[in-house]
Design a protein around this nucleic acid. Sequence first.
DNA 1: ATTAAATTAGAACGTTCGTTCAAAAGTGCA
DNA 2: TGCACTTTTGAACGAACGTTCTAATTTAAT
Lengths: 199, 199
Amino acid sequence: MLTKRRYDSEKVKKEIMESALLLFSQNGYNQTSVADLSKASGYSKGHIYYHFQNKEKLFVLLARKTIEEWHEKWIRKAAAYSSATEKLYGMARHVLYNYQTPLLKSGQELASNPDSSAGLVKELYDLSIVPKNAYRAVLQEGMDNGEFAIENMDESAILLEAWLRGLCQLTSIQELSELEPLLNEAITIFLRSISKGDT
Amino acid sequence: MLTKRRYDSEKVKKEIMESALLLFSQNGYNQTSVADLSKASGYSKGHIYYHFQNKEKLFVLLARKTIEEWHEKWIRKAAAYSSATEKLYGMARHVLYNYQTPLLKSGQELASNPDSSAGLVKELYDLSIVPKNAYRAVLQEGMDNGEFAIENMDESAILLEAWLRGLCQLTSIQELSELEPLLNEAITIFLRSISKGDT
DNA sequence: ATTAAATTAGAACGTTCGTTCAAAAGTGCA
DNA sequence: TGCACTTTTGAACGAACGTTCTAATTTAAT
């Protein structure tokens, strides 16, 4: 039994967050005004400030939530794969369909603003670490397994991350699913460079 | 003998363009105000509008100029390499040091603005085509040479472009030169997938 | 020296933005 | 019903933005 709520404030808050996530993802941080957030959610501008300290805090909240959910979902999903090799393919798909690349690109936009506080920049930077660590964990597992032979773990993780990110940012692609074969091909090529038995 | 110029308007125009290029590259389109351009160039806001129609036109002018110079420079440089394989390594370096990734990321920012005119979007899109075509030309040359065996040319060009772009956008890197070994490694891995004799 | 054109500056305009505020409306309990 | 509290609104603010305008200054030719 939930504690009885007199108002459905939490529900409203979630509604605002959902429509805000959509707008930020589609149009970026700077190109999404609080008035836009108001119109899209159906609540007044003032009301948005009742629930959130300001636009920046709302964005960071959404970004963190997105990354955390992405990561948790991945942890759950990863258990189903029986090899590190399979995990890499699965990770690529997971990035494609869950990572919200456009939202996090907006984060870079914010972080690169000279007026942004150091704390904000740090917070956004921490978020960008999450996927790299996830890649590295899979690579490490493959090393421990004996599936992979990786000389420079850092380098490999970065190469992998950059490739997937670059692919997810392609402007010429309309449907995410069009990207899937490209991601698969990238993983296949990348795997060839770290598979045991390679020089 | 040049035609005698009564005013050095052209020189001033170039000064403004140079400092504008710097600012747009560092801070992005939206986060660079005309006031900033004025301050950095040392000329008044009004004067900027004497030389350029508006902020958007100035930006597009700079973006086109940047890409065109990048391409011309590459064409000249490419002649010096004797194989398509070497050309790929050279191209990676050329992208790294001449492509002005941050500036063209700003272009995406502009293009994704819902208020941007169709003409503007088209113009910016055309710019994004340039590097892909350059990659493809090298891949094609390698095919004609017999150096490469590529099944899907489009796919390969996209994979290559995405990887290089992703690497050039890494936020964790301070000095461009730190990226060079990563780019080289990426090319090496990529080459292995298209070298003749591979499956 | 006068004049017309080119160049430059800086104030001003109309918008839009993020944010604040005072008040209204809704809600559940006494 | 009355009351204290939460929720919601919408007007208003000051700052910043891109742009325009007027006027001052400089230049080169008469």
